[in-house]
Design a protein around this nucleic acid. Structure first.
Lengths: 258, 258
DNA sequence: ACAAAAGTGTTAGCGATACACCCATGT
DNA sequence: ACATGGGTGTATCGCTAACACTTTTGT
């Protein structure tokens, strides 16, 4: 959506194409330079940053809508995506909006009963993406984008800080049951990288030796015959996931701690 | 909703009071006679059984809506209720319904664009109730109700078998992190009762001695000076939850196995 | 030579699991 | 007395957790 014409059509006739009252808000996690990050957009006319949300088409399966929205923003097609909560309790999600608000913020004239003014429930999805493969797409509504360290998330629009918090909580709870590393790390990675990733997500220190020991003992990763050069230090070996073992272990929930 | 007049008003004007496109479907678990059961309703005009669902009012917080719907059906106010998934992928949740279908099944005449004909996403909640305290309310749409053993759930309306399956799965996953026993058992219960409850939910045998040992060692239950008479057998002692310890243990996730 | 990060083994303690016999009660 | 379900203790094994020094690399 890039021209003013398209935007006007979306605002006025969007309810013929999309479901009112429900939106999808994806929390996109990426991992880069030892930091867990979230992709946020700066919306035109609105103060502050927000999630790259979107609407569901009238006859589109829900999960397909989530993939479409993700793909539109990141141009990634093969990513991990999971629904984690639906938000409909905060005051922002209960009250309806006014046409005046829209006029002031976007300079768009809306009918009082326009579909965008109605209360919207938000379905939270979280995505795990390989940071290095993402190219962010912007459009008419998007002024800027930025990957934010999860420890430094600014104040977001509406109740979206709550959405992000819940996503992080879910990520932590599921770290032993979902292919977290598989989707956040590049194909080849070093032990210190995956070690720091887990420490970052869990927000606590994990013993270096025990961590490596367990990964290897369970056959979750395979040591490659390559090393990465990291400057004035010993060169770490590269590893790959043993896809089959890894997935079996997750299913069985074998891995409880590191 | 009991008179035909009320029903007609709901069908024709419900969209002024309720949000279209979204419904709440609660899976109500109860435990009785060593069986985990689910409350299902027989809807008038529809073949088969279904969940006791309802709609969200326009300005009603989501979780409040879930409580209201639950309370309307069970007359219970103090119950455990948790959102677990939103369903919007199955063919039933994608396609829209026809006025003709409504005419045939309910003998109600609807406009082609009536709000009840539109696609509806379903928010799944699961509730844990003390079976002995429930009195089920029926209304115009409800022909009958029945508590079904979870191992014998019949074919349900739409995609609701999927909803029930997912609720069961979630219950199993959360058994160590949610006050499962607290809400499904009466205030006073015997060790064999809680033991069988956990076996039933997890669908596997748990060692009797280890189970009791752990419950008591962690101080989750307190032995009372009362016994229950169960006929021609040794009388089991009654126990109560040690509320404080129990909740602390859940929060900390202390209990991993039995 | 030095600074910074990678790599690597052992031990102690705790918790999970496996296992079988006696007791209470009503008929 | 007998049938049925309730109640109880111990020993082994495996996993977790704690812990520090040597190696590599570039400057």
């Amino acid at each position: 959506m890039n021209t003013l014409e398209e935007v006007n059509d979306f605002v006025r006739n969007g309810h013929h194409e999309y479901l009112a009252h429900v939106s999808i808000d994806p929390v996109i996690f990426g991992y880069h330079q030892q930091q867990l990050k979230i992709l946020l957009l700066k919306w035109k006319g609105l103060e502050g940053w927000g999630l790259p949300g979107g609407f569901i088409k009238r006859r589109e399966p829900l999960s397909q809508a989530a993939y479409r929205i993700l793909q539109d923003k990141t141009s990634l097609s093969n990513l991990f995506l999971q629904q984690f909560h639906i938000f409909g309790d905060s005051p922002y999600r209960v009250r309806e909006r006014s046409a005046q608000e829209f006029k002031e913020k976007f300079n768009l004239n809306l009918d009082d009963c326009n579909w965008l003014l109605q209360r919207t429930l938000s379905i939270g999805y979280f995505a795990l993406v390989d940071f290095s493969k993402v190219t962010v797409q912007t459009d008419f509504f998007t002024e800027d984008y930025h990957w934010w360290d999860v420890r430094e998330i600014p104040t977001l629009l509406f109740d979206q800080n709550e959405v992000v918090d819940k996503a992080l909580l879910t990520l932590r709870l599921q770290i032993y049951h979902q292919p977290i590393g598989y989707n956040l790390l590049p194909e080849k990675f070093t032990l210190p990288e995956i070690h720091t990733l887990y420490e970052t997500i869990l927000g606590k220190e994990l013993d270096q030796r025990n961590f490596a020991k367990k990964l290897i003992a369970l056959g979750l990763v395979r040591k490659l015959n390559e090393q990465r050069s990291i400057g004035a230090h010993r060169s770490p070996f590269l590893y790959q996931f043993e896809k089959e073992n890894y997935e079996n272990a997750l299913q069985a929930g074998v891995v409880h701690t590191y």
